[in-house]
Computed example of a mutant assay.
Amino acid sequence: MSSTKQPREKISKMSGEVVDSNPYSRLMALKRMGIVEDYEAIRQKTVAIVGVGGVGSVAAEMLTRCGVGKLILFDYDKVELANMNRLFFQPDQAGQSKVEAAATTLSFINPDVTIEVHNMNITLMDKFDLFMERIRRGHPGVQGPVDLVLSCVDNFEARMAINKACNELNQVWMESGVSENAVSGHIQTIIPGETACFACAPPLVVASQIDERTLKREGVCAASLPTTMGIVAGLLVQNSLKYLLKFGKVSMYVGYSALEDFFPTWELKPNPQCDDRQCVHRQADFHKNPVSRKMDFMLKAEETAAPVHEEDFGIVVVDETAAKDLQDDTKVTEGLRSEYTKDDQGTSAGQGDAVADTNESIEDLMKRLGSL
């Protein structure tokens, strides 16, 4: 079953006019500051999100608030009270399908965004063809392919289905995931033929020929933290915006480990012996015509206008050399300074409370004190 939520006419639209009363103007400021060349282009973009759970629902909300033109949502689960430890969903939505509940909320947040929903399991044979068709022709107007597919599912079978569809359609997509212990996650950009697909480097559990469904134990479920899922969703949408609006450098892979505050990044090369034959075909096509689809628009400082700040947020920027010269035992990050410093005797003094050095000995000072 599928449906499309059209913009609500009774709610004022988030027009592109840059005025204080329009929340969209804050996003348009990215263009005024020289970060994005054409932010309005986001309204012409269509993004498909597979999996509207802890990561997918928040990613959908972020894209909606950013003014994306159209979202196509795929999921077959229902909202449960157990989902309330995450962001986005509300207790009164329990029992509704996740896609329908998401569409209602997102349409209220920004009625300009067209929301198309499909309450179905894409891994089923009869649903997979429809999934392929919506990726191929989901873009409104031209009836062409979507601009980007985001994978926010929590199982290997669904990821492989997305991988198969995107390899066959030569569709760029981004994969995301959160670990079972809820304290780490990752995002990965996959360009068929140019980077490793999901089948090129399968996870260890699959390489060991173990059915992931046998790993589930009765009464035990994966941990879930709204913080980790929010962080991963933010990384995913930030990367999506860079790809869609062509600014900054699109990350090929970013990991996140909350226990170590570690963000590893690298790029995975495609495997010539990949089990997905469509991936091998895409690799051959890329070798014949090596035109990269990676977006690398690193902004050069000398070419970027200085940001115009309309408000004072109390941020103080100082020369880096001044920060390096601080003699406090507690080192501070370069570019920052301490509000209070310690003198040689270890007492704290404000920067404007320095005492003049008279070169008097302690005995002389005691005599002066006794004569008072």
Score class of each variant (00 low, 15 high):
Arg86Met: 03
Val318Met: 00
Gly370Thr: 09
Leu326His: 08
Lys127Pro: 06
Gln273Thr: 14
Ala323Leu: 11
Val99Lys: 01
Gln93Pro: 05
Leu106Lys: 02
Val99Ser: 01
Met252Tyr: 14
Asp154Tyr: 03
Leu236Phe: 04
His309Tyr: 15
Leu336Gln: 15
Glu157Tyr: 12
Asp38Pro: 06
Ser15Val: 11
Val153Lys: 01
Ala349Phe: 13
Leu336Pro: 10
Met1Phe: 15
Met28Tyr: 07
His309Asp: 08
Lys13Ile: 15
Lys78Asn: 14
Leu150Val: 03
Gly234Glu: 01
Thr265Met: 07
Ile122Met: 08
Glu116Cys: 02
Leu169Asp: 05
Asp154Glu: 04
Val183Ser: 04
Arg136Cys: 13
Lys342His: 09
Ala284Val: 09
Leu369Ala: 06
Ile35Val: 15
Ser57Met: 08
Phe88His: 14
Pro140His: 12
Ala102Val: 05
Ile72Trp: 00
Gly248Ile: 03
Val237Met: 06
Cys279Ala: 09
Asp328Leu: 14
Ala322Met: 05
Lys324Phe: 05
Glu157Asn: 09
Gly54Glu: 00
Ile210Leu: 09
Ser292Ala: 14
Ser107Lys: 05
Phe247Lys: 01
Glu180Gly: 11
Ser292His: 05
Ser12Met: 05
Ser179Ala: 13
Pro264Ala: 13
Val52Met: 04
Pro270Val: 08
Ser240Thr: 11
Ser151Val: 09
Ile162Met: 02
Asn167Ser: 05
Ala207Leu: 07
Met160Cys: 11
Thr195Ile: 04
Ala82Thr: 15
Leu81Lys: 04
Ala322Cys: 07
Phe286Lys: 03
Gln238Trp: 05
Tyr76Met: 09
Ser107Ala: 10
Glu260Met: 12
Asp275Ala: 03
Thr341Val: 14
Leu30Met: 10
Gln171Arg: 13
His186Tyr: 15
Glu194Trp: 10
Leu259Tyr: 04
Arg8Thr: 10
Ala354Glu: 07
Gly234Val: 03
Ala349Asp: 09
Asp344Leu: 07
Leu299Phe: 08
Ile315Cys: 00
Pro145Met: 10
Gln93Leu: 05
Val206Gln: 06
Ala82Gln: 08
Glu310Ser: 15
Ala102Ile: 01
Asn271Gly: 04
Lys331Ile: 10
Leu63Pro: 01
Ala258Met: 10
His139Pro: 03
Val280Leu: 05
Thr64Lys: 02
Thr105Met: 12
His118Asn: 13
Thr358Cys: 10
Phe247Gln: 01
Asp276Arg: 03
Asn155Arg: 09
Ala101Lys: 00
Arg368Lys: 12
Asn181Cys: 15
Met295Lys: 14
Cys221Asn: 11
